[in-house]
Simulated assay, not measured.
Amino acid sequence: MTRTIDQESAEVRPGSGLFLRIVPPGLYAGRARVLVERSFLVYRRAWLSFVSGFFEPLFFLLSLGYGFGRLVTEVEGPGGHLLSYPVFVAPALLAASAMNGAVFDATYNIFFKFKYAKLYDAMLATPLGPLDIAVGEISWALLRGGMYSAAFLSVMLGMGLVTSAWALLALPACLVVAFAFAAVGMAATTFMRSWQDFDLVQLVVLPLFLFSTTFYPLSVYPSAVRTVVTWTPLYHAVELLRGLTTGVPSWSMLGDLVYFAVMAAVGLVIAARRLGTLLLK
């Protein structure tokens, strides 16, 4: 028996049997882009709060990279290469910029929409499903983290802190980092009960920022602490971006990318399931 082209294509279209076996009906309508468009329209009127997140890593670069950097001659970088302190610190602040932009949007903003504005309840009255909401909000957080990263990378280029053509891959790497942090941030937000729980977000983000080889190399730590640091996500982001911007690529970067791929997948699945449980109960 022959099958028509329409019958064959129906097997992979949303609403068909194969697709529904992968994503249950009611969870995904393929319209996550609508949430990205909404966020763009909202922040077009509140652009000052959007761009302010760019200045934090810039101030750290100017104060520590150049201020404290006058007291430090050279620091051991990827592959044992000696780097000037500003060149060592800048890619770490680039990674932190991607993390902060994604985490802020995926926690504070989403919590307000979820708990107080009841925005997602209204969305579920439309064809949108929980997975649409998760993908849309994480995508916007990804774009925000990516914009911060692109702006900071431009500053690095202007200051002569990029020493290799491998830096062309730094922005795509930042997008991977931002997506992973946004997915985990949104998943964590679904477990929060009040604004006081955001102290826990700072309790995680601030130590990551300070101890993930942002301002000094891994070799300064005792061996036990060094092992813990190498498990943290921002450490992998710093190592990935530092290797690209200084022109010292290595096979370990593939492991860093796999780390963030797993992190993003786990965060997205948990966020979608938690939203479905909380909003459709």
Rank of each mutant, 00 (worst) to 15 (best):
N109S: 10
P57C: 12
P222G: 08
Y259R: 02
F260W: 03
W251P: 08
V266I: 15
G77V: 13
M1I: 04
L206A: 14
V238L: 11
S164T: 07
A96F: 15
V51T: 12
H81Q: 15
T214E: 09
P172N: 08
V184Q: 14
T246P: 02
L268S: 10
L48V: 11
A224C: 00
D121V: 14
A32M: 12
L203M: 14
L41T: 04
A167M: 11
M99L: 15
G267I: 01
W251A: 15
M147W: 03
T230L: 14
L143C: 04
A106D: 13
Y66T: 03
F152A: 09
G77N: 13
I270M: 05
P217V: 11
V269Q: 04
P91G: 05
T2H: 01
T245Q: 13
M159S: 04
Q7R: 14
L208H: 07
W231P: 00
A98H: 04
V204D: 05
F40K: 00
V42L: 08
S194V: 01
C174W: 10
A10E: 13
G145N: 02
F260R: 05
K281L: 09
E8M: 05
R45L: 08
Y85H: 03
N100Q: 11
I5Q: 14
A102M: 02
A188M: 11
V177C: 07
G247F: 06
A182Y: 07
W166Y: 15
P91I: 08
S52P: 07
P233C: 05
A187S: 15
D199A: 12
P14V: 05
N109P: 00
A102T: 09
Y148R: 04
Q202V: 00
M253F: 13
V51Y: 01
E137C: 07
L175R: 09
G26H: 06
A90D: 11
G30W: 00
S154F: 09
G267C: 11
M156G: 10
S250N: 08
I133N: 01
Y148T: 01
A122Y: 02
A183Y: 05
A29L: 06
V184N: 06
P217G: 08
V269T: 14
P207E: 13
G255N: 10
L161S: 09
F60H: 15
G30F: 00
V201L: 14
L61V: 02
T73D: 15
R13Y: 06
M156R: 03
L244F: 07
